[in-house]
Nucleic acid binder design. Sequence first.
DNA 1: GCAATTTGCAACATCACGTGTTACGTGATA
DNA 2: TATCACGTAACACGTGATGTTGCAAATTGC
Lengths: 155, 155
Amino acid sequence: MDARLSRMLHLLIHMGRMHGPLTSEAAATMLGTNPVVVRRTMAGLRDAGFVRSVRGHGGGWTLTCALEDMTMLDVHRALGENGIFALGPADPKATCLVEQAVNGALETALQEAEALLLRHLAGVSLADIAADFDLRVAELSPEQIAARSHRADVP
Amino acid sequence: MDARLSRMLHLLIHMGRMHGPLTSEAAATMLGTNPVVVRRTMAGLRDAGFVRSVRGHGGGWTLTCALEDMTMLDVHRALGENGIFALGPADPKATCLVEQAVNGALETALQEAEALLLRHLAGVSLADIAADFDLRVAELSPEQIAARSHRADVP
DNA sequence: GCAATTTGCAACATCACGTGTTACGTGATA
DNA sequence: TATCACGTAACACGTGATGTTGCAAATTGC
């Protein structure tokens, strides 16, 4: 299961709430993964212009635009043309007419679902998700806040 | 890429046009795969009651219902509870509230798309696909028919 | 009864892909 | 100059679909 979109969303929203650059090391700790994986995945976002990377002392990753100006679709696209489905035709170039008919039916269904998904992703900005985060924080009871205060893996 | 749904649809429609049982060997030749793979995949359809298997001389696989009475969704379900997406949350049980918000946004989008896809699959019977196959045959020119007549991989 | 055919199934190999890890190079700062 | 931090290549690992071999069990034809 490809978790890159999920991870990058997670990271970008944290970055939107931070001051100063975030190192790959710190990001990897947040995500429970490896700095190299962070760099590898963030590379797409950098090439797409959503983040900037600075090397050397005091370097790291910084957002180059506001969370309002980034949609889930933007992030998905920046990660490369990855297939969305775990499902697909056995042979997209089939010569058997039965198989062609099957491919047609399957591809129609998948394209319809993909279009809906992408449309949905385009309608949700990272600021929307951040706002949902704020809601979740506001709903915490004082006990829950106290229980979280001594832990490093939560903001 | 999971091609099981595609393959089984292909096979079932061929079976709907045949008389007598189809051996795993012949099916594997049609699909360009292995008899064991055919048995493995058909097992789900057998357990779901859509096909029957008979061992020994003259045995093989037979449909137990008409193509009209089988939808793409039926076949998908019979193949087991396979995930549809290549995408997903990094940690469905996240404790980080940011990640929870991300998971919420992502899962909403995926569930919506999945629901649409399943609804679509439920609306297409194998007979519908077979009818599309008939259309494709009708559209063949005499030259194309002649070119196909000496090949084994097409009906 | 015996041989041939065909499914059932276990066990293992292979392939693709996301992920984890190590190593080394390059640029920036103190 | 030493240290920090990204960039990238190279390789290992885990997982899931697929490919392959081998053998048991059931059924048919002789």
